[in-house]
Design a binder for these strands. Structure first.
Lengths: 231, 231
DNA sequence: CGCGGCTTTGATGTTCATCAAGTAAAGTGG
DNA sequence: CCACTTTACTTGATGAACATCAAAGCCGCG
């Protein structure tokens, strides 16, 4: 972890309008003053479950996983978050602790804002409060939707969903380097490493994708969508 | 559905302090004026997925299920909500539509508050905004936790969890009438009706519970808890 | 009384986890 | 830089968990 000193102003941040668009200049300066940029290298743990929440976090660059460890020591990945995501917004104002851990999958640049300043602004600026509540609703909706989707899918559908997630939401390309191991892939879809590998091999043999190590090339995008939706 | 005219004042409502404790008298009257009590009979659909959200709902009495229907027509129950729960708080301020349907499992009395009034109060009263955001965080935390739990459990653990949920959270008794059918039980734990019945029969034969139709009597509470935690 | 939905049990097959074993790749210390 | 250790990846065999199909009893309701 490295705290950056040559931090970029929020004014040039493409993600600024996502959440802070309704702040006036003075309020906005408060955020900027209470803010620090932090650079994490790959594989670093940003936050631990049960750690006290004292900042608001969002990603400028990189990729992280949100996960929980069960009593047998096995990890379960809740979601993978990308630039623009507010990785702790949903649980931030509970006055409690994180209910998941966060680790980086790539070198990651994050903004960290003092939670007290955010709380002050929610109290002071009604429009900002509304925008926070809106944003929380959207994040919750995504969680509900992904849970609903997974409960209908078998392993092929779940693998297809994750591959399409990386292609459409993260890399915006049909060829990309998978940022997670096969084991993490399994932890993300609640399947074993072995069956995850087997299914990826099946997709490869069937000509739906081409795999070479961590490189994935989606050959039949439409068919992958059919698998995602139907199974 | 029946709109009650002899509505009870919020002042005597035991659930009032849960969310409206920080409102002053004038604000509180605004809520009260924008509020109506609605009585639904058993099996009634309160809200449909894709319906526009225009009110805030919470339960005074009764029991409801939140669920989604998939493209094959099969229902998936997201959660069962009891008095005191804010059944649409998490998705309410998205300016969008419900992302699940809500139906009653028993005769249910609900309070419905105009969403515009709530939005106005969030903007005007900072402490109220904070309490809303806190409450949303807690609800989200419960969803994340239940998802994490389910991903580790097989059918026996999931059945045990639901039985303990009804005993501990809903009825506060070890003997109760199951408010859902066996099919709905399956929809709640993402298992088939047949295997749900089989497992309940196993628990019955093993002397962990005693079942007679919809009546459930938990005989070995501690063992049920072990099943919930270990599998 | 007959129909439809709920419940239950059994038989069968599919999906997935587990165990085992081996190869490849990546990190580690001398 | 190389030997060594660890971690990641892969395939196969086996059994457990679960879905599906079928059939029958039960119960409430028009």
């Amino acid at each position: 972890m490295k705290i950056k000193n040559d931090i970029i102003s929020c004014k040039t941040c493409v993600y600024r309008t996502l959440l802070f668009g309704c702040l006036d200049d003075i309020e906005y300066k408060m955020i900027n003053n209470a803010r620090r940029e932090v650079l994490f290298h790959k594989g670093e743990k940003i936050k631990s479950e049960f750690e006290k929440i004292n900042s608001f976090l969002y990603l400028r660059r990189g990729l992280v996983k949100l996960y929980k460890t069960d009593h047998t020591g096995k990890d379960h990945i809740l979601s993978i978050n990308k630039p623009g995501d507010f990785i702790n917004l949903l649980c931030i104002f509970t006055n409690e602790t994180y209910n998941y851990s966060i680790s980086t999958l790539e070198e990651t640049l994050a903004c960290e804002v003092d939670i007290n300043v955010l709380e002050h602004l929610i109290k002071a600026n009604g429009d900002f409060a509304i925008s926070i509540v809106h944003r929380m609703g959207h994040i919750a909706g995504e969680i509900i939707e992904s849970r609903f989707e997974q409960s209908q899918q078998q392993i092929k559908g779940r693998i297809a969903s994750i591959l399409l997630f990386f292609a459409d939401q993260v890399y915006h390309r049909k060829t990309f380097e998978l940022p997670i191991t096969r084991r993490e892939f399994g932890e993300l879809i609640s399947m074993t490493t072995e069956n995850t590998i087997r299914t990826l091999s099946d997709f490869n043999n069937d000509g739906i994708i081409a795999t070479k190590g961590k490189t994935i090339n989606i050959l039949d995008y439409d068919f992958l969508w059919k698998i995602k939706v139907n199974g």
